[in-house]
């Protein structure tokens, strides 16, 4: 029995490594290989070893393309991601806290609205119409508000499930000590949410940073490009320069990779607390 499990452990692991290499690693190797190829070889879009290693040449060419559009896009996407995820975390946690702790006759309605926010696909053109009316269309802060509005429902659900596991006696102790609502929330509750905040940050940052549809609709124009739109804009321009297109893909994956390496171990623990135990 023991020997069997030992064999199973290594055999299935090694088979797993081979299969995942074929299915999950090959596409990334392809991206990397194509990104360092010269233009002619890249245009074939075949899975072959690069004949030339033009890593830095291609990197610089992508950065310089279209008047340093990628730099602008990186600044835009970073501001967008940090601001909107920050908004979701703070505003979402505030709602989840009061919603979980205080039951009124509106609780049912609020829960229904949150469920609606999770399920209903946003109405595109009416949203543009409203943004125009508020002078927020084609502005970065307009898109920040949009991402917050669309991301709140899921954020609140994760927070609410987690807050229900924080004992109410903690609140009562703080209140008896004279803490007002702001102090109670920001000093006592908010720090306890650390693990679920990490989950929210990683999931929503991935969503916002990789979002293509919302910037496409609500923030058109080259000067406003986000990193995902650079791919879209370069796709036509780089029709003959696939090496630069793939270099672009490579560059815009790095920020999320760093986030992943920082929060990797927290993902499962945060999910346990937030999504499944409920």
């Amino acid at each position: 029995m023991k020997r069997d499990t030992f064999i199973f452990k290594y055999l299935s692991g090694i088979i797993g490594i081979i299969v995942t290499a074929a299915i999950f690693i090959v596409p990334f190797v392809f991206i990397f290989f194509t990104a360092v190829k010269d233009r002619g070889q890249a245009a074939l879009r075949e899975f072959t070893l690069p004949e030339s290693f033009l890593f830095f040449e291609n990197l610089i060419a992508v950065i310089e393309a279209r008047d340093y559009m990628l730099i602008t896009a990186f600044v835009n996407s970073t501001v967008l991601t940090v601001a909107s995820v920050g908004g979701m975390v703070i505003f979402g946690a505030m709602v989840a806290f009061v919603l979980q702790r205080r039951v009124t006759r509106f609780t049912g309605l609020i829960n229904a609205l949150i469920l609606a926010g999770l399920i209903i696909p946003p109405a595109v053109v009416p949203t543009i119409w409203v943004l125009q009316g508020l002078n927020l269309f084609k502005t970065l802060h307009g898109l920040i508000f949009i991402e917050v509005a669309f991301g709140l429902a899921f954020t609140i659900l994760l927070f609410r499930a987690f807050i229900s596991s924080i004992p109410r006696e903690l609140d009562e102790a703080a209140i008896i000590d004279g803490a007002g609502p702001i102090k109670l929330f920001f000093r006592v509750i908010f720090p306890l949410l650390r693990s679920v905040i990490a989950t929210v940050i990683i999931l929503q940052s991935i969503t916002v940073f990789n979002d293509f549809q919302n910037p496409l609709y609500f923030l058109p124009g080259d000067e406003n490009a986000t990193v995902q739109l650079t791919l879209y804009n370069f796709q036509s321009q780089f029709n003959t320069s696939f090496n630069l297109l793939y270099m672009n893909i490579l560059i815009i994956t790095i920020p999320m990779l760093i986030l992943f390496l920082l929060f990797n171990r927290r993902i499962v623990s945060g999910m346990t607390a937030g999504a499944v135990k409920g």
Binding site: V98, I110, A123, F145, A149, D171
Partner: peptide, 30 residues
């Protein structure tokens, strides 16, 4: 303990305003 005072309704306000204006309103308008 005074529940309404410790868990004030205005905690809903920032999220509610953004959500109502940029999500609920366009959905109804659609």
């Amino acid at each position: 303990l005074n529940v309404a005072k410790s868990y004030p309704s205005w905690f809903y306000a920032p999220a509610a305003i953004i959500y109502a204006v940029l999500f609920l309103l366009p959905t109804l308008l659609s």
